[in-house]
C-alpha cells in the first residue's frame, strides 16, 4: 500500500477530482459573481455622490443601482492626454491593473452623472496606503474644480487608524467644497494635512491622528491620480468656455 505507485495514483485521482469539482462550481457561479462585483463597484461610485442622489449608497437595491446607472450615468474612458478612447467601457477598467502600467499608457474611467441639468464628474484614483493599496472616487461639480463628494476604500489599512478613510464618514465629508485648482486654473490637488487643515484653505483637509502614512498616501494618490485627469478636464473646460463665449 505504501509503494510509490500507489501514492502517485492516489494523489493524482484526488487532485483531478478536486479540479473538476471546483471548475464546475466556478463556471456555475461566474456570471452572478461578476455582476455582484460590478454592482459593488458602482455602489462605490454612488457613495461619492451621495449628496446628489440624496441617498446612502447602501440604501439602493441591486436593481436600483443598475437602473440608476442606465438612466442617469454616461461613462467614458480617457487617456492621460485627455483623448477619449473608443470601444472600451469604463466598467471594464480595473484601476488595480491600470496602476501597474506606465502613466502614459493608463486608461482612466470617467462617470458623468446628470440629473436635471446638474452634471457631476466622478473620477477614480488609486494609490498606496501604509500596508496595501488604497483607492477612491472623487466627484467634481460642473466647474470641474469643486469637489462635491469623495469616497475612499482600502485593502488592509489598520482598523481605527488608516481604515478611518473609509469607516469614518467625516474624513470623506471634509473633501466637500474643496477645490483641486487655484484661481488661475492651475492644478494644486488637495492635501491631507497632519495636525489639521488651515482654516479657509480650499486645498487642504484634516488628517487622521495616528494614520500619517495612510493620510500621506491619500495626498499622493490624489496628486498623481487627479493630475492624470487634468488634460481631459482642461479640454472640457476649454470647450465650456468656448460655448459660453459663443453664447455671449
Amino acid at each position: 500500500m505504501e509503494n510509490n505507485r500507489y501514492v502517485i495514483i492516489f494523489v493524482f485521482i484526488l487532485t483531478a477530482t478536486v479540479a473538476v469539482l471546483l471548475t464546475f462550481l466556478r463556471e456555475a457561479t461566474k456570471d452572478q459573481a461578476a455582476l455582484n462585483e460590478e454592482i459593488f463597484n458602482k455602489r462605490a461610485i454612488l457613495s461619492a455622490i451621495e449628496d446628489k442622489t440624496g441617498k446612502d449608497s447602501g440604501e439602493f437595491t441591486d436593481e436600483e443601482v443598475v437602473q440608476l446607472f442606465e438612466a442617469k450615468f454616461t461613462q467614458k474612458v480617457v487617456n492621460v492626454e485627455g483623448e477619449t478612447l473608443e470601444g472600451v467601457s469604463a466598467d471594464d477598467i480595473d484601476m488595480a491593473k491600470e496602476k501597474k502600467k506606465p502613466e502614459s499608457e493608463r486608461r482612466l474611467p470617467v462617470y458623468i452623472y446628470e440629473d436635471g441639468g446638474d452634471k457631476v464628474y466622478v473620477l477614480s484614483v488609486r494609490g498606496n496606503g501604509l500596508w496595501d493599496e488604497i483607492w477612491g472616487n472623487i466627484a467634481l461639480a460642473e466647474d470641474l474644480n469643486t469637489v462635491v463628494g469623495a469616497a475612499f476604500d482600502h485593502k488592509g489599512e489598520t482598523p481605527g487608524l488608516g481604515a478611518e478613510i473609509k469607516d469614518n464618514p467625516t474624513f470623506a465629508n471634509n473633501f466637500k467644497g474643496k477645490q483641486i485648482m487655484d484661481n488661475d486654473g492651475d492644478f494644486v490637488s488637495i492635501l491631507v494635512r497632519k495636525g489639521g487643515a488651515e482654516p479657509g484653505n480650499p486645498h487642504q483637509v484634516d488628517g487622521i491622528s495616528g494614520a500619517t502614512v495612510t493620510a500621506n498616501g491619500v495626498t499622493k494618490m490624489l496628486e498623481s491620480g487627479l493630475e492624470n485627469y487634468m488634460p481631459y478636464l482642461n479640454d472640457l473646460r476649454g470647450e465650456g468656455q468656448q460655448g459660453m463665449l459663443q453664447e455671449q
Binding site: E2, F10, V11, V18, L22, L25, R26, Q32, N36, E37
Partner: peptide, 29 residues
C-alpha cells in the same frame, strides 16, 4: 498513504475553502 497524509488533508481543506469563497462571492459580495 501515510507519507502524504498532510498534503492530502490540505488538499481537502483547500477545496472546501475554495467552495466557501466561490459561494460567498455568489451570494454576498
Amino acid at each position: 498513504p501515510k507519507s502524504v497524509r498532510m498534503i492530502v488533508q490540505l488538499v481537502i481543506i483547500a477545496t472546501l475553502v475554495t467552495v466557501v469563497e466561490l459561494t460567498l462571492k455568489y451570494l454576498n459580495y
